[in-house]
Design a binder for these strands. Structure first.
Lengths: 403, 403
DNA sequence: GTATTTCGTCATGGCCGTTAACAAATTAGT
DNA sequence: ACTAATTTGTTAACGGCCATGACGAAATAC
């Protein structure tokens, strides 16, 4: 007889512990009373929660807090910067990177390495990455940080295996990889390994970068590593799709009977605004090292061909995005990843198309959807990966406390 | 000093009461032990929950349940069909309708009336509807049903007012209405009034029609009352958008420099597959009474012009939908509302375009997204409205018990 | 007819958040 | 300088809720 799995009793406690952690992670130092107000519990209840977390070493007191107001000042509580931490890694087309983030969300360790991963043997790349992770783990131990998990950002399509809970990499066109279990090639000992699409992680990084301008909980995030990926965040949650394939903006039809696309369709956005298409339109021959960065350089130099190519790509992107905006009604559109470097020339045509095509659909609201470049730029996926691990840890206080 | 609002203590109880109700609503009669297994509580806990609900008159025992298996048979529990009920109403272009649904999800009372609402004075229409609602309320009282709320389906754009929590109708093109507080013109005494877009409610009806073929929790639902509306359901939740305007499939660009649209854009889906466009393409003059039904009749008669018009509309719809499918990765696409009547001729071209344009995007999965017609058809919005009220009631057991 | 299985209930116990009261720490006012 | 007011954090009593374990009840299996 399978026991119905104990539930709902200790679960409330766990959730409340987690809510305290998240409140502190989101808003710097807070007193117990402030936490209580934020999460809707009484001061007494928060006291016991804080006690438990404090004895577990997850948070520290930072002396008397604010002053100037009437009444006894509260003691500032802060998440520890010496306990658990989250590992993030990124496998790019021409680089590998690792970051270690503490519970406060600060990046404490960061390693990067240029490598040609395109067409390389996955095992070799994973071996290199494993080496970097071990280095980072050593540094982390030196700083008093204890790993709670690893999240890897990959430019490819993933399928979550229902059985094992692990994600398989189905296809990574830019790497030339197919059907690989990445987690199997990475070190154990850092905790559970999650593999996630890098566009999705870039969007999450954007979502979590509370310091930045836009703390928007609902937006479309466009990046361009695998063709053109869009990640959709709705009400603070990432939209993954029924099979995990959501966000394929690259194959949204822009001109229904236009250029044939490798996907079998015609006139997909990718054939107009994909990296290869744009480079060719600008008169550049795509190849190792010749990527969007090179195009950005030409634009900066005022190269007319490059500027025209980017403008045209922006128009196509704007058309595809206006479909997405009509359908999803996001609060804003964010251009991130490598695409962010082209923002100075890309944003205007994108905004123009969006303004043209989403006016009435938006219920006649005066201002069209704002389009902006991600301040994180190419760092998004790596920060998102590390942040993902940290958030996951904060969601499970019991795991952190037992350690 | 604002009290932090008591929380988390009685809330767990409420949620568990609600979970019992939902379990019984979803799967016919269940014994206490079966409920316990479904919602993950112990039999003892469920016993007390059932006790409370039973004393409140929300559920009834239906004698010994299943037999044939070993062991003492459980007593079948069922939601009452004589207590609380939900009201739903629909304001269509040429009809009004009211339905009363009991907690079991069965429609107990249903009234319909042909009226020309297009261009009519809102107050007059609301007065007629109020009369129908009063009739229904009288019948309900006779059947021992007590109203817990009213949900109204409207073919228009709504804005939720953050302050009052009420929804304002911003714009209903087909009715010619603008900026109206519908709830203000409807009877009080039925409980809280909710106004919601009819495409959204149609999709929810589809989601809740567990009896039907597809118990899919993630799909795109297309209907065609206001231009062309799509409702997106993700993980069982309706995607509303940041401003509540999500689902404007009608203004997704299909041919970027195609026909000018009333929205200011060009080549919107609506200009190819909207009701007016399709009727004209089929050689019908749109007008009162001449609507999609007339077109369906011609198709049935084998009218070549009509068939061609529908085929072309289907192609345009398929193009727009392939954008949506690439972006959202739904488990299926459902054609509902008035559009469902054209399904026999519409589905093939839609599927064809989807198959062409979403193959690789779907990660090379062999079967493309299935497209099917809603079995509910034009009834969807009304059923969704009544169902919405009932679900809302089941979410708040305390409200039902105090009654 | 007995053993077995499953259902529903009851008493017990542990955990958790609320309530209410209180000491501590600071500002405002005179 | 001293009192009043205000806010914080802690403590003890209380009540609610679910889990555990045992038990009688009601059916099937042998």
């Amino acid at each position: 007889m399978a026991k119905p799995a104990p539930q709902s009793q200790a679960e409330m406690r766990q959730r409340n512990l987690s809510r305290v952690l998240h409140a502190l992670a989101a808003e710097g130092p807070l007193s117990r009373a402030e936490v209580a107000a934020r999460i809707g519990l009484t001061r007494a209840a928060v006291s016991t929660l804080v006690d438990e977390l404090s004895r577990g070493g997850l948070l520290v007191e930072r002396g008397p807090g604010r002053s100037g107001a009437v009444g006894r000042p509260g003691t500032g509580l802060l998440l520890t910067d010496r306990g658990p931490c989250g590992f993030g890694a990124e496998i790019g087309v021409d680089h590998l990177a690792v970051a270690v983030m503490d519970l406060r969300g600060r990046v404490r360790i960061r390693l990067g390495q240029e490598t040609r991963n395109q067409g390389a043997e996955p095992a070799a790349v994973l071996a290199t990455l494993t080496g970097m992770l071990r280095d980072a783990a050593r540094d982390a131990a030196g700083a008093g940080l204890r790993p709670t998990g690893l999240t890897v950002a990959v430019p490819g399509l993933l399928a979550r295996d229902a059985g094992s809970g692990r994600s398989r990499l189905l296809m990574a066109p830019n790497l030339g990889w197919r059907d690989i279990d990445l987690a199997a090639g990475l070190p154990t000992g850092l905790g559970p390994v999650t593999v996630e699409n890098e566009a999705n992680l870039g969007a999450l990084a954007e979502l979590w970068s509370a310091g930045g301008a836009g703390v928007q909980d609902s937006f479309v995030h466009v990046s361009a590593e695998i063709g053109i990926g869009a990640a959709v965040v709705v009400e603070g949650r990432l939209l993954r799709g029924a099979h995990g394939f959501a966000g394929e903006l690259g194959h949204v039809p822009v001109r229904p009977e236009g250029r044939p696309c490798s996907c079998g369709g015609r006139g997909c956005l990718e054939t107009y605004a994909g990296e290869e298409a744009v480079l060719r339109a600008a008169g550049l021959e795509p190849g190792p090292g010749v990527r969007l960065g090179a195009l950005a350089a030409r634009c900066e130099a005022g190269d007319a061909g490059a500027l025209r190519a980017v403008r045209q790509a922006g128009t196509a992107l704007g058309i595809a995005l206006s479909g997405a905006v009509n359908l999803l009604d996001p609060r804003q559109v964010v251009v991130g990843g490598a695409l962010a470097r082209l923002a100075p020339w890309l944003l205007a045509p994108v905004s123009r198309e969006l303004a043209r095509r989403t006016s009435v659909a938006a219920g006649g609201r005066s201002t069209p959807v704002p389009v902006r470049a991600s301040p994180l730029g190419p760092d998004g996926p790596l920060l998102g990966a590390a942040g993902f691990t940290v958030r996951a840890a904060l969601d499970e206080p019991s795991r952190l406390l037992r350690g």
